[in-house]
Nucleic acid binder design. Structure first.
Length: 645
RNA sequence: GCUGAUGUAGCUCAGAUGGUAGAGCACUUCCUUGGUAAGGAAGAGGUCACCGGUUCAAUCCCGGUCAUCAGCUCCA
């Protein structure tokens, strides 16, 4: 039979040869490192005989698909270790994930693991790995399978099997551990050389909060020690970027139970950064024909009944406030207020689009377990806007809104993924509006995305209740994904609020609304931005831009005059005239991540120069005050740091 | 909200089997006037998260609350 390799080579092999035998014929080294084989694109075990002409691809740990097989096998290995330490443990699911694997387990007697139990499991895993146990596949009938798991009494596996009726069923066994599994797996456990179990946490069975809580163990394994060490170092480095840590160290924000969990308070330095972001965006809004509005933090409950938000999200809102005979809600979003502004006066087709923008603070009662730094909070400010337009204008407006969002991400050099968030058609309860309108809106969004050449994934069930969205998603320092920017199409609210404009035909028409927020939430955006820059803000955003450090008392007057001239130009300048050595002043300036330290000694005074020290770089030499000022002025523009200096 | 863990000085963390606690940094004062990442000394600073219970005695043991962390669920 003919076997085709990824590079196009075709070689002849006897029928029934296994993947491993082919691998060995290529090289001993590859045979050692091979973890799996793709036969005609299908993932298979290397031990499986190949019967017919096929194209094959052998994967190692260098390949993402190889890692997936490796970590999936590691999950089985961990399960075996757990089973041997805690006999009678029942197993849920144990897949490979982006970085490593997990297994959901249920230990008899309701025992819950803690992080202290993990080293013991790791040790057992290494023991089993060293025993070089083969992963052996057995194809079974559904009846055989169900009988096996009933005998063991693992209701989780039984439930999984119920969903697999009529499909091919296979077991995998290594050592004493048998699992219901589709495969494939690495040849034997000896490939798994280094293991680190990272955390243990609860996880609902089948992700359903009404069902039992299992124990989930997260872990990662590698074939080489250096890989594990590098990964752990990377985790450590990531922790240093954590915005909650940097927020404290750089005095950007605080969260205190004295005010309330999930209610961040912006300290002076954090406020500076936030205001700079706001004015950056405000400048863009003006260029793009938005007008700014301001609306109150609370609104009559009836507004939210009209919009439908109140019934949809009653659980996650702060309780209404009763005043006299009326009830008010801390506003959970800005839209209904903006709709009132739209309705303030009759609108003509000539007025459209109307683009109302507001940095609007909203309050949502998020579940306590969800609160996290600035990323998930109960009070936050959206860079919100609502665009009311005619249907003919919709696509252009969507393009403009997406373009603005992209400008934000490119300005900061952030990596984003784009998701078209569509409804889940099977969940009719969740969505307002009729199905045809939804189809139309989703089609329009997709057309815009395609027209703009966006690379996107489609998220079924991710739409909001009133319409589909284009969402922009980024990862934080420790790899968690967060939605930032969003652009949404809404045919529902114009209907509910009876919004109208008079057309050229002198007849009333319904506008379409675009909800959009390029940053999303200022809080969440800042959290990502802090981590993105690891606290090293570009000059134009830095809370303190220039730190003037006189070497001795004789230079203080010169330094103060210098500070004043920089202050007058609008730079954020600090001066350190403490009776301290210059090394200490520099060290503290570096720790605070101030972009430039300006060092003034007798030499500089004599020559009327300043010595510049760039954060993270060190001394960059002496400059005339004019040259330095020109540099700072250039850097003070958004994106200015990207120009070569 | 759920599972598990954690909560000691402004920050980062030690600590004792139950007898009211300690370091480094920061802070205050004094000495040091210094050239590109932390000079020296002294001092001050704590209801050991909060509320109950057990005990002669609780920061430590038990229960509850709040907050934080990891994850699950949720996210207009």
């Amino acid at each position: 039979m003919k076997i085709t390799f990824p590079n196009g080579d075709v070689r002849e092999f006897p029928n029934g040869i296994t993947g491993m035998e082919i691998t060995k014929s290529i090289s001993e080294r590859l045979a050692k490192e091979a973890l799996g084989i793709f036969v005609n694109g299908e993932k298979k075990d290397l031990s499986l005989p190949i019967q017919d002409d096929a194209s094959i691809e052998i994967v190692t740990f260098d390949d993402t698909r190889g890692k997936e097989i490796f970590w999936h096998s590691s999950a089985h290995l961990m399960a075996e270790a757990v089973q041997s330490i805690y006999p009678g443990t029942k197993f849920g699911v144990g897949p490979a994930i982006e970085n490593g694997f997990y297994y959901d387990i249920d230990i008899p007697g309701g025992k819950k693991l803690s992080i202290d139990d993990l080293p013991q499991i790791e040790k057992k895993m290494m023991e089993l790995a060293n025993a070089s146990l083969e992963y052996h596949r057995t194809d079974v009938t559904w009846d055989e399978a169900i009988e096996h798991w009933k005998k063991i009494g693992d209701e989780y596996k039984i439930e999984l099997l119920e969903g697999l009726k009529g499909q091919e069923i296979s077991f995998y066994q290594q050592g004493n551990f048998i699992d219901l599994c589709r495969g494939s797996h690495v040849p034997n456990t000896s490939h798994i050389k280094f293991v680190k179990l990272l955390s243990v946490a609860g996880a609902y069975w089948r992700g359903d909060s009404t069902r039992s809580m299992m124990t989930r163990i997260y872990g990662i394994t590698f074939p080489k020690k250096k890989m594990l060490d590098d990964y752990l170092t990377m985790l450590e480095e990531a922790k240093k970027r954590d915005h909650r840590k940097l927020g404290k160290e750089l005095e950007l924000f605080m969260i205190t139970p004295a005010i309330g969990g999930g209610l961040p308070v912006w300290l002076p330095k954090g406020t500076t950064v936030r205001r700079k972001l706001e004015s950056f965006l405000r400048d863009e809004l003006i260029k793009r024909g938005y007008v700014e509005v301001i609306t109150p933090h609370i609104g009559n409950l009836n507004l939210y009944k009209t919009s439908g938000h109140y019934p949809y999200y009653a659980e996650s809102q702060f309780a209404p406030i009763k005043v006299d005979d009326e009830e008010y809600l801390l506003k959970p979003m800005n839209c209904p207020h903006h709709h009132q502004i739209y309705s303030f006066k009759p609108r003509s087709y000539r007025d459209l689009p109307v683009r109302l923008a507001e940095f609007g603070t909203v309050y949502r009662y998020e579940q306590s377990g969800e609160l996290s730094g600035l990323s998930r909070v109960r009070g936050f400010t959206q860079d919100d806007a609502h665009i009311y337009c005619m249907h003919e204008q919709l696509k252009d407006e969507l393009i403009n809104a997406v373009d603005l969002t992209q400008l934000v991400f490119t300005t900061f050099g952030m990596e984003v993924t784009t998701r078209l968030s569509f409804r889940d058609k099977t969940n009719t309860e969740k969505y307002a509006g009729d199905s045809d309108t939804w189809d139309k809106a989703e089609k329009e969004i997709k057309e815009v995305a395609d027209q703009m050449g966006l690379k996107y994934e489609i998220g079924i069930g991710e739409a909001s209740f009133y319409g589909p969205k284009i969402d922009f998603i980024v990862k934080d320092a420790i790899g968690r994904k967060w939605q930032l920017g969003t652009v949404q199409v809404d045919y529902v609210m114009p209907e509910r609020f009876g919004l109208e404009y008079t057309g050229a035909d002198n007849q009333p028409h319904r506008p379409v609304i675009i909800h959009r927020a390029p940053f999303g939430s200022m809080e969440r955006f800042l959290s990502i931005l802090i981590e993105h820059f690891a606290g090293n803000f570009p000059f134009w955003l830095a809370p303190v831009q220039l730190n003037i450090l006189p070497i001795g008392g004789n230079q203080n007057e010169f330094a103060y005059n210098l500070k004043k001239s920089f202050d007058d130009l609008g730079f954020r300048t600090e001066i350190d005239v403490r009776n301290e050595k210059i090394n200490r002043k520099i060290a503290e300036s570096e720790t605070q991540k101030v972009p430039y330290a300006i060092i003034i000694g007798q030499k500089e005074m004599d020559e009327n120069l300043i010595s510049l020290r760039e954060h993270g770089k060190g001394n960059i030499g002496n400059f005339s005050i004019d040259d330095a000022t020109a540099l700072f002025l250039k850097l003070n523009q958004p994106g200015g740091e990207k120009e070569n200096i």
